[in-house]
Design a protein around this nucleic acid. Structure first.
Lengths: 142, 142
DNA sequence: TCGCAACAATTGCAATTGCAATATTAGCAA
DNA sequence: TTGCTAATATTGCAATTGCAATTGTTGCGA
């Protein structure tokens, strides 16, 4: 009776995605531990390293998360001395976020971790399949 | 200086996956609201509908989540009268979980929702690309 | 049989997250 | 200028989640 339901959900796109993301998150969490970062701080730190100097709303736009998420992640990163909140030159309500010297030294490690994690995950696929996968993903991601 | 870092993370596999999953989760959350379910209860309810009767550890094995997650999701589902925790025939510590009559009526709706959500998400792809995508995903999902 | 480790499920408590308010500043229109 | 609305960032509080016990049960070996 439930065979049809089973067919729908079994190996459903959404189910597989969730599994995959959880797996990659675990992998990333382990890799980030050495650097003292957690999974919430990581994307914010990456954005700062990529685009600094920028404001917190700009980080939010890029990373597509509400302001309070950025605010809190930056709290953690600031406390570890990895980023600076400097006054914005033209607006007293905004902050300009930049990595500190210490923060910048993380860049190669993070860089490497991302590459490794993505590569490991995609390892079972052929080069052509990997390209296809990435192309299709960017087609369906907003 | 950070161009390389940007290249690595920009449209990185992991980043795109996270975006995609968040988007699908939002879509699912909206769809589930009509049925009074939330995103934690949904996969458990699906598993129960697909495989009942089964124990909570079995649900955990299938859905790959720790026991307490199942326990709490079932609390919610039971409170809404969608599932039953019956005594296990051979073990007094295990429960046998089954959908109630009310729970079973949800099956077609959930079924439809999953199909719609997956289809909408994959809509920008050609049929061939969709197949490829699903085949590749199942290759890399544990 | 007794004792003990493993198993199934639940729960207390701390950490994390999300929402809605708050404080402060900017810009603009009357 | 004054007053009002929007923008920027933060925070209080409630809801959710995760970890580490806890409860009750089973099976096994001494």
């Amino acid at each position: 009776m439930w065979d049809e339901t089973r067919n729908v959900r079994e190996n459903s796109f959404g189910r597989m995605l969730h599994r995959l993301v959880r797996h990659m998150d675990d992998r990333m969490t382990a890799g980030l531990e050495d650097m003292g970062l957690n999974l919430s701080e990581f994307p914010v730190m990456m954005t700062v390293l990529e685009r600094a100097p920028l404001t917190q709303v700009e980080i939010g736009k890029i990373y597509q998360r509400p302001a309070y998420v950025i605010s809190r992640a930056l709290d953690g990163l600031e406390q570890q001395g990895l980023i600076d909140r400097k006054p914005h030159p033209t607006s007293r309500r905004a902050h300009l976020i930049s990595p500190t010297k210490a923060g910048m030294t993380l860049a190669p490690c993070l860089h490497e971790l991302v590459k490794t994690c993505n590569a490991e995950t995609l390892a079972p696929l052929s080069v052509g399949e990997r390209d296809m996968m990435l192309r299709c993903l960017s087609k369906i991601v907003t």
